[in-house]
């Protein structure tokens, strides 16, 4: 059985694609055969974040419409074994994603022995976002510590609870996880930013992890290498911990407490 994980948020720019790339890579690093699919038809970016943009020949819509088969469209990731990328179409419009088409491709991936299928949702609550969550078994809701992101996350949770197949068919509900990204322990400590516990209290879903705000994310996207590969950075470690928790392990939260910098560090700077 393949598990379908949807990475979603409602709001744009909160780190869905960064998270999709790192979660998919993390699962593959653990030995699971993983596919990551870009649902953002017309505005594809997962290929850039994964660093495979020059290897895109066929896309998701080509496969749905029968112009190519899945084998031709899946791009093998260069950083991680067991990982394959299915890019979105850049030229078609969102309606090209039909429910039957998406379902057929997910079934086919399952037949090919994939353990996890990660769906990178577009922003918004329109057709593309709904298609990305329709078949979800689990959902990772990516939220920034900021009012509009929290409200939109709550909205998208409502949509998962009403429009997913699991909800419509009355099966066991989609398992929801909260991933707080772009978190600044210092600003939260000083009362300038919602804390991760505030966000969890507001959204009332289990916390999968807290990813700190970091320059490493921009370095990662600049190079087209998922952030989880930025060795020994807090961001990579926080994603690795989140993967562990997703797989049922217990890891204490790291990088969430603010340590006051010492006098020397304050005088001489340094990061």
């Amino acid at each position: 059985m393949a598990t379908i994980i949807t990475i979603t948020s409602g709001k744009g720019g909160v780190g869905k694609t960064t998270t999709s790339a790192s979660i998919a890579s993390g699962l593959a690093l653990r030995g699971f055969k993983t596919a990551v699919i870009d649902f953002d038809v017309g505005l594809r970016n997962l290929d850039l974040i994964m660093g495979c943009e020059r290897r895109v020949v066929y896309d998701f819509v080509n496969v749905i419409q029968g112009d190519a088969n899945l084998h031709q469209a899946l791009i093998k990731d260069k950083n991680t074994d067991n990982l394959f990328v299915l890019p979105a179409s850049q030229t078609r419009d969102k309606d090209a994603l039909t429910e039957e088409g998406v379902e057929k491709i997910l079934k086919e991936l399952e037949h090919q022995g994939f353990d996890y299928i990660v769906c990178d949702s577009p922003a918004g609550i329109e057709h593309g976002a709904v298609m990305a969550l329709t078949f979800a078994d689990e959902a990772i809701v990516v939220t920034n510590p900021e009012v509009s992101s929290v409200r939109d996350s709550d909205r998208i949770l409502g949509i998962i609870q009403s429009k997913s197949r699991r909800a419509i068919e009355g099966r066991e509900p989609v398992k929801e996880h909260l991933l707080v990204t772009r978190y600044s322990p210092k600003r939260a400590h000083e009362g300038e930013m919602l804390t991760y516990t505030d966000i969890q209290e507001l959204l009332r879903i289990p916390l999968l992890g807290v990813i700190p705000e970091s320059e490493a994310v921009l370095h990662a996207s600049n190079q087209g290498v998922p952030a989880i590969h930025q060795k020994d950075t807090p961001v990579a470690d926080a994603y690795l911990d989140a993967i562990g928790r997703f797989l049922g392990e217990t890891h204490p939260l790291r990088f969430v407490d603010h340590e006051k910098p010492g006098l020397l560090k304050r005088l001489f700077g340094g990061k």
Partner: peptide, 21 residues
Amino acid sequence: EKKATASVAKERLQLIIARER
């Protein structure tokens, strides 16, 4: 001195989220 505005954000979110739910 910085303004601690996070508590205002939380209060506003509690209200609006409850209403929208």
